[in-house]
């Protein structure tokens, strides 16, 4: 039992991509260990501490670590962006990639609860990308949809579409999955069929 738990932990640790640097009841921000190594928009992630909080990536940013030092263009004359980073390897130390995750649930007693967590993640909790089985389990329940459609979230429809694109890819019948969740979205957005269609169309790309 102990070794199985350890094995599970080892598998998870491979997916750890950064640590929480800001957290609130509704979202949390993660700083990546490596520049540009953030998960794609719509990815399901979790804070990896004693009260794991589950989030969907809604926004990513790469910028200077020091706000008073902005990047300056290196060209013209350099072939491609890779050569710029090879030529100035310190950029990897001076820039930072971060992403914000909308809180969509938490884990309690090994079960997913689709509500806001009673407590936000602790600062410096590791953040990891959820594995396929966790994503499958999470996306089988549609309760998260209403949270993502919250108008306070910037580009919420695109974030939802990006999540559905990733989640549907794991389903045996992606099309059927999108039809079923489309009904849920339609029920939450009465009279907004064009918007619903746009979300589903973006999820199919």
């Amino acid at each position: 039992m102990g070794s199985a738990k350890q094995e599970k932990k080892d598998n998870f640790s491979g997916n750890i991509i950064g640590e929480v640097i800001r957290s609130s009841s509704t979202d949390f921000e993660t700083q990546c260990y490596e520049l540009y190594k953030f998960p794609p928009l719509g990815s399901l992630v979790t804070s990896d501490d004693e009260n794991p909080v589950i989030g969907i990536v809604s926004h990513s940013v790469t910028e200077s670590m020091d706000p008073s030092r902005t990047p300056r263009p290196r060209g013209p004359g350099l072939d491609n962006v890779k050569s710029i980073y090879d030529d100035s390897p310190q950029l990897n130390n001076l820039l930072t990639s971060r992403f914000t995750s909308i809180t969509v649930g938490y884990t309690k007693d090994s079960s997913i609860v689709m509500k806001l967590s009673p407590f936000p993640p602790r600062i410096l909790s590791p953040t990891r990308i959820c594995n396929d089985s966790e994503l499958n389990e999470f996306s089988s329940n549609f309760d998260f949809v209403s949270r993502l459609l919250n108008p306070s979230i910037g580009s919420s429809d695109d974030v939802l579409a990006a999540f559905l694109d990733i989640a549907s890819g794991l389903k045996p019948d992606p099309e059927q999955y999108l039809i079923e969740i489309g009904k849920e979205i339609a029920s939450l957005l009465p009279g907004q069929m064009r918007r619903v269609n746009l979300i589903l169309r973006n999820a199919c790309k």
């Binding site: 980073y85 090879d86 030529d87 390897p89 310190q90 990897n92 130390n93 001076l94």
Partner: peptide
């Protein structure tokens, strides 16, 4: 301190 390696496998340490 700052250390920068140029050429193959470039890196920097601050």
């Amino acid at each position: 301190s700052c250390l920068i390696k140029y050429g193959d496998d470039p890196y920097a340490e601050l």
